[in-house]
Design a protein around this nucleic acid. Structure first.
Lengths: 277, 277
DNA sequence: ATCACTTACGGGTGACGTAAAAATC
DNA sequence: GATTTTTACGTCACCCGTAAGTGAT
């Protein structure tokens, strides 16, 4: 069988035109190239070159062989690229979540059990998440409803409860609990990437405006200085205990302010996630 | 760069399931296969197998690598096949002729000048010959008319003159020359592969029947024993001087009994055939 | 004289085989 | 005990580099 290095040398000769230039390109001595070409001709049993005393040029057979060499080497490079990519994919868990809250709980727990994995997260809507699970853009989903599907495993996960957050000067600050309709019409500071919660609050408080902030910290600062209400949840309160400076969290009693989360992953990945979760 | 032998070993392991069987298939010792797989994993930088103490199985990455190995090895085999075929083609001259006569002159002459070539011959009609020259089924044609075409070279070659051959008992045996019309209606023994001559005699003697023989010798024998006339030409008479036993050759004086041949080949092949012809 | 290829020689890497150990069935 | 994989060690092939040779520009 013809070894790759012979094909590599042939390809270099084909591209460079002379043995000397090919040797330089290959970072080897020129006699090695000369010998390799002889060996290749001998193994193939055909002449690949027209030789004069100090010139060597590919003949038609040689050009054909060089073309095959190019294809084979190209395929091998592609193999290496593909395997590297595949391996990277294997070592990455891509989590798609319907909301940011549960990620705040899940990620710290994975940090211990899945230390050999790279973890990527994305907040998105249900349609994208389900599609992404099928085409492997996501390996693990966090949904806000159970999924019935023969190819996937769906496990009940944590729940989340929505609060509004106000400062002491806000009229609602004295209330122990509150409803969407009581707050409807007031304008809110809101973190931009809250997932499905955005749909909830917009539909439950259609007369309100929501000023979205890409930066989570900016929400806290603005809500202090502006007197505008904002949102929090039981999860965010437990994770971010810092800076309660004067802000009061009031639970929303509406049913839509409560959500149960579910973890969803392909049955193929059962073994992997059973170990990690 | 990954050498081919590593891919071959991987493919064997993939097909055989165990290192031992793969080693047997490869006709090498089993530790070599074990080492090769380790080396392959090391060069690719990934694990290709799940290993227990006395079992080794391909993982998903390994299967991907094995599939690439199969492709690469397949391409290399195809390269060897293709090159061998190409080389054979380069060393073969395929001659297509409109009639057998000129081949009897050309082949002996080529035997001396083209000893490094394999020579294949075929009798066919003009349409097939011209098509075959274009698609390289033929390298050299013998035609009975000159060809005008920018891509080809056409050279006047030898001529041929058609005779009828009878025995002493045939009424025409006393004639010094004869015409198609005089013979029309008589039935002939005829060699099967006479090329365009068949069209000539059938159209010039529409009332005759022609008993075709695949074997050239059979024509001679039958024409002796059956009193039926047959054909010869100045060329066949000069080549086959044997067994004149009682047979008389009478020249046909019709213009259609004379033919001038032409050699035709592609301009690409000019250098080759100028040397040989 | 320079350039390009070939030939000759010595060295070191590494692929292979044999032998033996470790572990599972 | 048989089978399978791994480890250890010695051998030999072969790929490479250096140096010298040949012929052409």
């Amino acid at each position: 069988m013809i070894e790759i290095y012979l094909l590599e040398h042939l390809l270099a000769v084909s591209e460079c035109g002379t043995l000397s230039d090919a040797a330089e390109k290959l970072n080897i001595a020129q006699p090695s190239v000369s010998r390799a070409m002889k060996k290749l001709e001998s193994e193939l049993g055909v002449k690949l070159f027209e030789r004069t005393k100090n010139k060597i040029t590919l003949n038609e057979t040689g050009k054909l062989a060089a073309e095959y060499a190019r294809r084979i080497i190209e395929t091998e490079k592609e193999m290496q690229r593909h395997i590297a990519e595949f391996e990277k994919q294997r070592n990455t868990i891509s989590i798609g979540s319907i909301a940011p809250g549960p990620l705040m709980i899940l990620l710290p727990s994975l940090a211990g059990s899945a230390s050999e994995y790279t973890i990527a997260t994305q907040i998105s809507d249900e349609t994208d998440l389900m599609g992404g699970l099928s085409d492997s853009r996501y390996n693990l989903l966090i949904m806000n409803r159970p999924i019935e599907n023969n190819d996937v495993i769906c496990k009940k996960y944590i729940s989340e409860h929505l609060y509004i957050t106000v400062n002491h000067f806000h009229p609602a600050a004295v209330q122990k609990e509150i409803t969407f309709s009581e707050m409807n019409g007031q304008n809110f500071i809101m973190y931009a990437k809250v997932g499905f919660w955005e749909d909830i609050v917009k539909s439950e408080m259609p007369d309100s405006k929501f000023y979205k902030q890409d930066d989570m910290d900016a929400v806290g600062e603005l809500s202090c200085s502006s007197n505008l209400p904002s949102f929090s949840t039981d999860i965010t309160q437990s994770v971010i205990q810092s800076r309660n400076n004067g802000r009061i969290n009031i639970p929303l009693t509406d049913k839509k302010a409560y959500t149960q989360y579910y973890l969803v992953y392909m049955k193929n990945d059962k073994k992997k996630f059973d170990k990690l979760l």
